[in-house]
Amino acid sequence: MGKKTNIAIAIAAASAAAWAGSKAISKPQKRELKEALQFERPVVIAHHGGAGLAPEHSLQAFEKAVSFGVDGFSICIRLTKDEEIIAFHDATVDRTTNSSGYVKDMTLTELQQLNNGYNFECLEGNKPYREESVAIVSLRELLETYTDKLFIISIQDSPDTYEGSLMPSKLWRLIEELAVQNQIIVTSPHSEQIDRFNLYARNSIALGAGEADIKKAITAYTSQFGHLYNPKVDLFQVPLKSGVFNFDSQKFIKFLADLNVPVLYSEIDDLVTMSRVVRQGAIGVVTNRPDIAELLIQKVTQ
């Protein structure tokens, strides 16, 4: 054999030895299953209150979702100028209202005077909420109104902003004041925000995976070193696919389930896909269409 072949064989042997050694000594740590995630059946979570049926993050949407029997809501939060937490996705109010401006530059009172449903287009193609008052709602009001629902709360403000620097502590204080620890899951696209929040919560609140956590998990799963992966979050809320990453896999679900980390698939709006991912072992779905998901709810509760 040539010199290059011998080197390749040596590298392969060393890699195999490293894998075998890490496998022998590795003891992945399972997450302690939080009370908020102890379900007796697959769950249906309304995305932004059920954004396919009414303006997102509006009381109209939340009420419609509740009428279809959802188990909870997946919402985004931002901080206002007067440091109130509201249920809202974007940094500006441009997309949902007929006004422009940043959430951070307006008080809760000012924001509630806007029509949050101005640009909402219903399934029939018209915009029925332009003549109605659709107010932006605070997180406090939601938690005090829906005391029997699960809330997956996503911190949208970036950690390098003033609002983002305040949000983890503000959110923790509100949860603690209302004593709703067991119906809350806190997440964020910014994994740093999840870590900051947990400095206050001290693992007493269920945590959802941020973008960095998701990339770390899928990389471990697709490599030969998945046995070295130790999660630091309690729930993965993921789409079926994002970029080059495919999360739609029964094996991926099992990989995380073996660590006591359930998978919840987001923005699933057709019954066939809902039923399939539940059969694969997903803990449930997040949907814009709670009316469609009602059929799944009826099926899993029979």
Score class of each variant (00 low, 15 high):
Gly117Gln: 02
Ala61Leu: 09
Ala206Cys: 11
Ala18Glu: 00
Thr80Pro: 10
Val186Met: 04
Gly125Tyr: 00
Gly50Thr: 09
Val137Tyr: 02
Thr161Pro: 05
Leu174Thr: 09
Tyr129Cys: 00
Thr107Gly: 15
Leu235Glu: 06
Glu35Ala: 10
Thr96Ala: 09
Ala17His: 04
Glu121Ala: 03
Ile152Lys: 02
Arg130Ile: 00
Tyr146Thr: 07
Leu111Glu: 08
Leu33Val: 13
Leu178His: 13
Arg78Asp: 02
Thr301Gln: 08
Glu192Leu: 14
Ser249Arg: 12
Ser169Asp: 03
Ala16Leu: 09
Glu267Gly: 00
Gly50Ile: 12
Asn98Val: 04
His227Lys: 10
Arg41Gly: 03
Tyr129Trp: 05
Thr107Ile: 14
Lys149Arg: 09
Leu296Asp: 03
Val70His: 08
Lys30Tyr: 05
Phe73Glu: 00
Val43Lys: 10
Asn182Gln: 08
Gly2Ile: 04
Gly125Met: 00
Glu144Gly: 07
Asp195Val: 15
Cys76Met: 00
Ile297Tyr: 06
Lys3Val: 05
Tyr229Asp: 10
Lys104Cys: 09
Arg140Tyr: 15
Ala135Asn: 01
Pro168Gly: 03
Lys216Ser: 14
Thr287Val: 12
Met274Tyr: 11
Leu123Thr: 02
Phe73Met: 02
Gln224Asn: 15
Gly117Met: 03
Ala16Lys: 01
Glu121Leu: 03
Leu296Lys: 08
Pro231Glu: 05
Ala206Leu: 11
Ser100Trp: 11
Arg173His: 12
Val137Phe: 10
Gly117Ser: 04
Ala54Ser: 13
Pro262Gln: 03
Arg31His: 06
Ile77Lys: 07
Gly21Phe: 13
Ile86Gly: 12
Ile11His: 03
Ser191Cys: 07
Ile7Gly: 00
Asn6Thr: 05
Gly69Cys: 03
Glu56Ala: 15
Leu271Gly: 04
Gly101Asp: 08
Tyr118Val: 07
Gln156Asp: 00
Gly164Arg: 01
Leu264Glu: 02
Leu142Met: 15
Ser58His: 14
